[in-house]
């Protein structure tokens, strides 16, 4: 995957967090691919589905997607491409 950035600089004062605990955005994304997620857009619309993949722009491919507006399902898509600039957050719908 085409990820953008290295982890924040470590200035030698603190040890890095244990690698088993998912920390950085990249680690989070690795852990969440293939899982059910909630993608909220800045408009407040939610997309719930299985995360197929994503890229460094936060462009997202979802499977079995449901569109939720004000808590109601307004659309269903087999597959959906979501352009990354609209994404507010990606949240794990099941605990990791």
């Amino acid at each position: 995957m085409d990820e953008q950035t290295p982890p924040p600089p470590d200035h030698g004062s603190t040890p890095p967090p244990p690698p088993s605990v998912s920390g950085s955005p990249t680690d989070f994304l690795k852990g969440v691919v293939g899982k059910r997620v909630i993608v909220r857009l800045t408009s407040g619309v939610d997309y719930r589905g299985v995360l197929s993949c994503l890229d460094g722009y936060m462009n997202i491919a979802l499977e079995q997607t449901e569109e939720h507006v004000n808590g109601m399902v307004t659309n269903r898509y087999g597959d959906a491409f979501i352009r990354g600039n609209n994404v507010l957050y990606i949240s794990a719908a099941e605990s990791l």
């Binding site: 197929s52 993949c53 890229d55 597959d79």
Partner: peptide, 16 residues
């Protein structure tokens, strides 16, 4: 990242 069952490895594959 291993491709999912649908063979999509990055979001743009869906469009392609």
């Amino acid at each position: 990242m291993d491709p999912s069952s649908t063979g999509i490895q990055e979001p743009f594959d869906l469009i392609r």
